[in-house]
Nucleic acid binder design. Sequence first.
DNA 1: TATATATGCAACACTATCGTTGCATAACAT
DNA 2: ATGTTATGCAACGATAGTGTTGCATATATA
Lengths: 105, 105
Amino acid sequence: MSMTNVSDEVFAALADPVRREILVRLSRGGPQTTGALTSRMGMTRQGASRHLATLESCGLITSRRHGRVILRELNPAPLRGTEAWIQSLANQWDERLERLKRQYE
Amino acid sequence: MSMTNVSDEVFAALADPVRREILVRLSRGGPQTTGALTSRMGMTRQGASRHLATLESCGLITSRRHGRVILRELNPAPLRGTEAWIQSLANQWDERLERLKRQYE
DNA sequence: TATATATGCAACACTATCGTTGCATAACAT
DNA sequence: ATGTTATGCAACGATAGTGTTGCATATATA
């Protein structure tokens, strides 16, 4: 597995605190409308809506339309890639330390 | 544990592909100078140097001076926070699904 | 049909970030 | 001392992202 360009968009999406809060709310409250998600978040509807578009673009959320309401739903699948990347990074470092340790014993 | 503002800087640092590649190189090659890290990365020394400053600012790398040479070293510790955050997010979603499943059985 | 609700799209100013260039500093080598 | 190597700091233009406002669209309700 290549260690570069693995879920580049996902990393960028996670960089914004507002988007992370949206993900947390979705994971706790389940599918919600933009309004329910936006309220008490100190931002215009359009501001939050753009964040939702960013999150959907990289696959972190999906949306289903019910009449005039659109329900946003969390999709944690892309997070596995970033999680794997981070773990691989830390693991390679640990393996390196272990090699050095064996060498000097 | 609060799900917001957990290693905000680390998430932002990981959003850049150049910085992620620097981390990968450090995890594989161990402590290196800026020059060794910068070469073959399609960027000026100052460009890479700024990324190194960003990474050091959030604790992902440390630096030791040896005469006129500064060795950069990976510090994977802050990554645990982001890893935990991602896992917690996915876990909460899974638990939610399980609750719903039990409810409808 | 009218009216309210839920949403998207486009344009705008503001800010942050990126990578560069130029100059300064500090440590080695000759 | 002089030159070379390794680095930092400051300023600049370019680019990208953020949040806003205004308008348009589509669906429900009276």
